[in-house]
Amino acid sequence: MYIAAIIALLVGALMILVRAILGPSAYDRILAMNAMGTKTVVLVALFGFASGRPEFLDLAIIYALVSFITTVAILKYIEKGRLD
């Protein structure tokens, strides 16, 4: 059950990767990275359950907490041309 879900999600990740490589704009790639981040959260949880070690979830929390900061940095870079 878990493995089936993992494989299906990895196929989805492959589609996202195609978008990340094709672009065309940089923002499509950022979007793909973001979507990949959400996928990773779910996949990590599924990996944990598949192998009977759900303490993997701490890792998913990190992504849930910090992944949006990258997009903030990108916005700042676009708006100001610098990061501080």
């Binding site: 959400t38 949880a45 701490d58 990108i74 916005l75």
Partner: peptide, 30 residues
């Protein structure tokens, strides 16, 4: 484990739209 799962769901409900908004705004500014 249940608490962590609920926590992740809740956190993503807060952060995901924020990230989406930031990307969109950056794209528009660009």
């Amino acid at each position: 484990v249940a608490v962590r799962l609920l926590m992740i769901i809740l956190l993503l409900f807060f952060t995901a739209p924020t990230a989406t908004h930031a990307i969109t705004k950056a794209a528009r500014l660009d």
